[in-house]
């Protein structure tokens, strides 16, 4: 399916700001499920865009505006051709998850971070699904996927970015990011490497993921998850709407959690309050040529390496930085330079 995606965010400031520096992650990835045909970024006021691939393989467009402005817009336009993603052709048992080389090759997707650091509730829920599914990895992943999709209610605007997955589970509702983070956290807690995916979904209902009746939809960015199946590759599932990720999904990139693939992050100078209005328009284009590729089958997993992690060793947690005291002053930052804290605004489905 040929889809044209137009991502656009407009910042409006209550008074002019003299500087803004940003990084955009909006470019569709190229992989076995999709091919990027065209991509273009436009910034207004005009700015020189510097583009690179980050450590996850996601294209980043960095740009800054350094002149007084009270409004800035960034527009990313992509044409992408998608096709159904293959389903697992292997049925590994859960013992395969504990192999040292498998763990070593996926350790970044087993660590917890601030978005996926589940507590006892998440662990118990994951264990329960694991027991129900038995010793089959794919079955267990599907069970987690189904659980998240049925346990959570999709309620737009119901949560903020950064809400702990334990609270999402207890609250029973969320947006697509919460569905993805909870599914990722549950998989990791039972030793299944899982990653958060940022992308676009061609639908007129995020909740059902149903195919739209029109050729053009206006949506927001979407999120789903991928789980590693030993001996096969990454299985992509969309727990928000209970679907297997298919040709209506356009993947931007993946990472450990939202922080690694945040669509737009940046800072601006000045006291002005701003409003941010991200918007995604997706258009189905008829008559596109079919994508015929000589390569097929699953993506190669992470390379198998030596020096493996001992079986049964607890996966080290990524340190969750202590939140900086609110109102931390420059003086305190000068003195104490090792705290960390991050905060972002939510801008997703």
């Amino acid at each position: 399916m040929r889809l044209d995606v137009r991502y656009r965010t407009v910042f409006s400031y209550s008074e002019p700001t003299s500087e803004s520096q940003n990084e955009l992650r909006a470019c569709p990835a190229g992989d076995e499920g999709q091919r990027l045909l065209d991509y273009r970024v436009t910034v207004d006021p005009p700015a020189r865009v510097f583009s690179y691939l980050d450590s996850w393989g996601t294209r980043v467009d960095a740009f800054g505006v350094r002149r007084p402005h009270d409004r800035m817009s960034v527009t990313a336009e992509a044409s992408v051709e998608t096709r159904p993603r293959p389903l697992p052709t292997a049925a590994p048992r859960t013992e395969a998850l504990r192999r040292g080389d498998f763990v070593d090759g996926h350790v970044e997707y087993l660590q917890r971070d601030r978005h996926t650091d589940g507590g006892e509730g998440v662990e118990a829920a994951a264990r329960r699904q694991s027991e129900l599914a038995g010793p089959d990895v794919v079955g267990t992943v599907l069970a987690v996927h189904r659980f998240v999709g049925t346990h959570l209610n999709y309620v737009p605007g119901s949560t903020d970015v950064g809400i702990p997955v334990e609270d999402v589970l207890a609250g029973g509702r969320g947006v697509c990011q919460d569905f993805a983070h909870l599914a990722v956290a549950m998989c990791r807690s039972i030793g299944i490497p899982a990653r958060y995916v940022s992308g676009y979904l061609f639908t007129d209902s995020d909740e059902t993921g149903a195919a739209p009746r029109t050729d053009t939809v206006v949506v927001q960015t979407h999120a789903w998850m991928e789980a590693a199946v030993p001996g096969w590759g990454w299985l992509a599932l969309d727990p928000t709407n209970g679907q297997v990720v298919g040709e209506h999904h356009v993947k931007i990139g993946h990472g450990r959690s939202y922080d690694d693939v945040q669509p737009l992050r940046g800072v601006y100078l000045g006291p002005a309050a701003s409003s941010v209005a991200p918007e995604v328009e997706i258009r189905r284009v008829d008559g596109a040529e079919l994508w015929r590729s000589s390569s097929s089958g699953p993506a190669p997993g992470a390379p198998h390496l030596n020096g493996t992690m001992p079986a049964g060793m607890p996966i080290p947690a990524r340190r969750v930085p202590a939140p900086a005291a609110s109102g931390s002053t420059i003086r305190q930052q000068q003195q104490q330079q090792q705290q960390q804290q991050q905060q972002q605004q939510q801008q997703c489905c």
Binding site: V103, D104, V107, Q111, G307, M309
Partner: peptide
């Protein structure tokens, strides 16, 4: 080349 474990570096 297996001299330093991948997981050790990434963690």
């Amino acid at each position: 080349d297996g001299v330093v474990p991948r997981w050790l570096v990434l963690s």
